[in-house]
Design a binder for these strands. Structure first.
Lengths: 182, 182
DNA sequence: TTGAACATGTAAACGGTTACATGATTTA
DNA sequence: TAAATCATGTAACCGTTTACATGTTCAA
């Protein structure tokens, strides 16, 4: 099975709600989907251009205040493609964790080194949790309880919260185990 | 920061223990690291060749029984590179979850569709858990308790177990929430 | 004798990232 | 007036995957 570009669906999905500029899409992703879906800076604009060429979105320049922005709107063809993607099962993601790989080879390092790496990750996970709180109190709080999106956005947030909690527990177990060794 | 090829370190690490053939490396990865590190079929052999050209590994053909295999051994230069990589902090992995993305856009689908996808994932996670049991009872059981690897391998396995447990809980919560809606 | 497992590779395409590039506007 | 944010892009590279390719040996 051929691997397909999923950036396009992330973008189409963002435009399915309302027209947005490339900048807005990037910004909104950072505030909402970043913990499970990120796009690099350079991926959004070229994809919008590509989608426009395929007539899946239409572009129109707008002057917002004194600034000019290119606002993109999804077309019926774009909506159709998005819906078709949404209907098929999600592809199994293949995750690669460099931390786990290093841990797997931990016998070749010193226990202190391994502990250090685990604690580094612990901090990263705590940072991520702070971000979840921010999404909860800022992005999500702005959505009305009755809004159809609310429930689903809360679910993706819950995913982040639950999984990071489990990861913290795991890290603490590992560190405890390693400290007993020394 | 430039992205660097990590396949090489996975391979060097596998060879740090003992000489292995490309086939053995692939097989062992499937039995041990697959839940956090996979290599596609086509990545191992070319990388071994590349590492050999860089004198990080040496190749020698062996006849194991009647079969010929190319056994690779790590060189001091290869060990040095491996150790250097092991010492630096693990890079933050950027995960992308297509399931979460579809869930985020769940309002554009029917609740039943979303539930179906969640339950599909649930089954995948259960399958993964079965695999962990297999790693535990087969791969890990063959390693002596006193072996320096044992502890670290068990930790990577625990990671898989803990995180999948959390994911199952999350899925069940989501499904419950969605069923209350309908 | 047929299928599973053993065993090793190549070529091409693709997705995604990094680095590069530019300039306006608002806020402190 | 300096920094942060707004705003939009391009070019090149590289890692990875997919698909292709081939042949052996052992067990049922």
């Amino acid at each position: 099975m051929k691997k397909i570009n999923k950036t396009r669906y992330a973008i189409l999905g963002m435009l399915a709600d309302r027209p947005r500029s490339g900048y807005e899409i990037r910004k909104f992703m950072l505030e909402s989907t970043a913990h499970f879906w990120q796009e690099s800076d350079a991926s959004v604009y070229p994809m919008l251009k590509k989608l426009a060429a395929e007539k899946k979105v239409t572009a129109c320049s707008e002057h917002f205040g004194k600034r000019k922005r290119k606002i993109f709107e999804i077309t019926p063809a774009g909506k159709k493609e998005f819906s078709a993607w949404l209907a098929i099962p999600a592809e199994r993601e293949n995750r690669r964790s460099e931390l786990l790989l290093k841990l797997f080879f931990g016998a070749h390092a010193t226990p202190d080194d391994v502990i250090k790496k685990l604690l580094q990750r612990r901090q990263q996970v705590l940072d991520a949790q702070k971000k979840f709180e921010k999404i909860d109190s800022e992005t999500l709080a702005e959505v009305a309880d009755t809004h159809p999106h609310k429930m689903f956005w809360a679910m993706t947030l819950q995913y982040g919260i639950k999984l990071t909690e489990a990861e913290i527990e795991w890290i603490d177990d590992c560190v405890k185990g390693l400290k007993n060794e020394t």
